[in-house]
């Protein structure tokens, strides 16, 4: 097991470099640039001024030289300085925002898991029932509806018409003056919509996936064996069938990390949540190359980490996976 993990981590290093190479290229090929954004609409900006700005940011050098420099800095975990007017270190900017994004994503992942898995199981066990049919329709609607649009509708419904939930930010203005319970409730209220929306697509996918796995597993011979032993249906479903049906879901959850991070960009922007996604959106809009690269690298790192964790989890959960143990 230990060797397996080490091997997986080592393989990830060239993968991470490859990803950074491609993203670096793509970002630099994107139209516009940090210079244009800060000088195009400025009538006083001369060509010479632009050249100076370019040289200041190091953009006058060819792309491969810049990539080499970036990689060299990354080797010592230096993310560089942001191009934005504050000029702060990229790592500092990301560090203060990571907790928000990660906690929302972890919460939504847990929500997905806790809601989608039971829905899938119940749909499979009662296949063709009213519940199954309602779940199927809801799930396909969920697939089809764009999250950002749904987010706006829910904001109007719950935030404006009903007034139950706040529509933006993480905390209310009076947050600091509230007692502890009030602060927790305030924060929870702010998180309901973002977490629901972050998990919405995954909810549909995972419940569907769980349902088909469960239908597949329930037909297996060993489920018949379990029934023939005289086990009650509840035990047959949860002990024998569910464990087998859950295995592939572990992988899917690991693979959903990039989707969640991508989703963060959308819902953090919509709900004005000061997280990494919002920072990324701002970074892209101002062509803040070091910031974009920094966030993408961390995103890639989290994705690979998610994959490794999923594989390790799978290997732990499924005794048939041989990870180099003898036997």
């Amino acid at each position: 097991m230990y060797r397996y993990i080490v091997r997986r981590v080592l393989i990830s290093v060239p993968l991470l470099i490859g990803i950074s190479l491609i993203t670096f290229g793509v970002i630099n090929m994107a139209p516009g640039g940090p210079i244009g954004i800060s000088s195009d609409l400025n009538p006083k900006a001369t060509a010479e001024y632009r050249e100076r700005l370019k040289a200041y940011y190091g953009l006058d050098r060819p792309i491969y030289v810049r990539y080499g420099q970036w990689l060299g800095r990354m080797a010592v975990l230096d993310f560089g300085d942001s191009f934005s007017p504050d000029g702060r270190k990229v790592w500092d900017k990301i560090r203060e925002r990571i907790p928000v994004t990660l906690s929302i994503n972890l919460l939504s992942m847990a929500t997905i898991f806790l809601i989608a898995v039971p829905i899938g199981i119940y749909s499979a066990v009662r296949k063709g029932s009213l519940f199954d049919r309602i779940a199927t329709v809801t799930v396909f609607t969920g697939f089809a509806v764009p999250t950002f649009w749904l987010a706006l509708l829910l904001m109007i419904l719950f935030g404006v018409h009903l007034g139950w939930l706040p529509i933006s930010g993480l905390v209310s203005l009076e947050h600091d003056s509230l007692p502890l319970a009030g602060r927790v409730a305030d924060r929870a209220k702010h998180l309901v919509l973002p977490i629901f929306l972050a998990g919405f697509g995954g909810l549909a996918g995972i419940s569907r996936y769980m349902r088909s796995n469960m239908l597949e597993v329930i037909r297996q011979d060993y489920v018949a064996t379990a029934r023939a032993k005289g086990l009650p249906e509840r035990k047959v479903v949860f002990r024998h069938a569910m464990r087998n049906a859950l295995l592939p879901v572990i992988t899917i959850l690991g693979l959903s990390v990039p989707d969640l991070l991508g989703g963060s960009v959308i819902f953090e922007t919509i709900f004005a949540i000061p997280g990494m996604g919002q920072l990324f959106y701002q970074g892209v809009m101002s062509r803040d190359y070091p910031l974009i690269m920094g966030i993408l690298t961390i995103g890639a790192f989290l994705t690979l980490l998610g994959n490794i964790l999923a594989d390790v989890g799978y290997a732990l959960a499924d005794p048939r996976i041989n990870t180099g143990r003898t036997g």
Partner: peptide
């Protein structure tokens, strides 16, 4: 081959 549960 298939009548025993693979994860127990």
């Amino acid at each position: 081959m298939s009548s025993l549960n693979p994860v127990l």
